[in-house]
């Protein structure tokens, strides 16, 4: 039996169908990423699994229980990081973990959790004085304080700076190594790639594809190379391939063979002693995957 089972899940808000008969399963210890744009139905799906919202139709099981009718025992075994929710700003970080942790059968030690999310220096600061990213880390801390078997993370790194994002990835990886089952939502393909064993892509409430991050990347095999054309040079001098798109001075090349193309172009430039400004090499993004799936890039 899988830890999370979703079969034919439907959610209507009035006459708007936010989630349209989606099915997926998450095995014990697996990290599953739900990927999609704003309004795709990620939060709706996750909150139905958490027991916060009621479904219109379909079957849902988490830890063998139906979240719609599950009670205290269920919530003791899951951890929830909501997309947005405040904490009493009058409390300190440590106090809030103490009081929220007190409700669980076997909470993790507070000091350990504070350390894990990197809030040691802020442990005795009032929550009202924390920055947005620090509050998000507190959200993570409150999500794991009960030592859950299943952790739901709704856009856990939104609002993080790049360093904090890396750190929280490491944290999630460490938690997963403990055998925790994780369902996370994100807008970012790189985040899903980093964290998730398997990814489902939601578009307009439908699960349009599912697979490992590598499989998703492979759906759009093109790597994008961009740079600015140096003054007084033409496409020909740099041996640009025929697929290159030149728009004024900016050049964009999409290719399946980035190493070869880069070698040709940079070789030609170097031979002439030219510097290619703003040179970037970009792997497929969520946009590219959506395009490859025949969907619209942005809803």
């Amino acid at each position: 039996m899988s830890t999370v089972e979703v079969h034919g899940l439907v959610k209507d808000y009035g006459d708007h169908r936010a989630v349209d008969s989606i099915s997926f399963t998450i095995a014990a210890g697996e990290v599953y990423g739900l990927l999609g744009h704003n309004g795709a139905g990620k939060s709706t799906t996750v909150e139905i699994l958490e027991g916060h919202r009621h479904r219109t139709a379909g079957e849902v099981r988490v830890l063998g229980m139906d979240p719609a009718h599950a009670g205290r025992e269920f919530r003791d075994r899951i951890g929830i990081v909501l997309q947005s929710s405040a904490v009493e700003r009058e409390l300190t970080v440590r106090e809030s973990l103490n009081v929220y942790g007190s409700c669980y059968c076997a909470p993790r030690p507070v000091a350990e959790v504070i350390e894990m999310v990197g809030l040691t220096e802020k442990a005795d600061a009032r929550i009202g004085s924390l920055s947005g990213g620090q509050r998000r880390r507190l959200d993570l801390a409150l999500g794991i304080i009960g030592d859950p078997e299943v952790l739901f993370l709704d856009e856990p790194t939104t609002g993080f700076d790049p360093v904090a994002r890396r750190q929280s990835w490491e944290l999630v990886e460490r938690l997963c190594a403990d055998g925790m089952t994780v369902l996370l939502t994100t807008h970012y393909l790189d985040e899903a790639e980093h964290l998730a064993d398997r990814v489902g892509v939601l578009v307009g409430g439908r699960l349009v594809t599912e697979g490992t991050p590598a499989e998703l990347m492979a759906m759009s095999p093109l790597t994008t190379i961009t740079f600015t054309l140096p003054p007084a040079t033409s496409a020909a001098t740099l041996h640009l391939p025929s697929t290159a798109v030149v728009d004024g001075a900016s050049v964009q090349i999409e290719t399946e063979r980035p190493t070869q193309v880069l070698a040709d172009v940079t070789g030609a430039a170097a031979a002439l002693g030219l510097e290619l400004d703003s040179l970037t090499v970009r792997r497929p993004s969520l946009e590219d995957v959506f395009l490859a799936l025949g969907g619209e890039a942005s809803p």
Binding site: E73, R75, L82, S85, V87, E88, G146
Partner: peptide, 12 residues
């Protein structure tokens, strides 16, 4: 603010 919802997320 979602504070009640957060409490609802715990077994209290």
């Amino acid at each position: 603010e979602g504070i009640l919802k957060r409490w609802r997320s715990t077994p209290v």
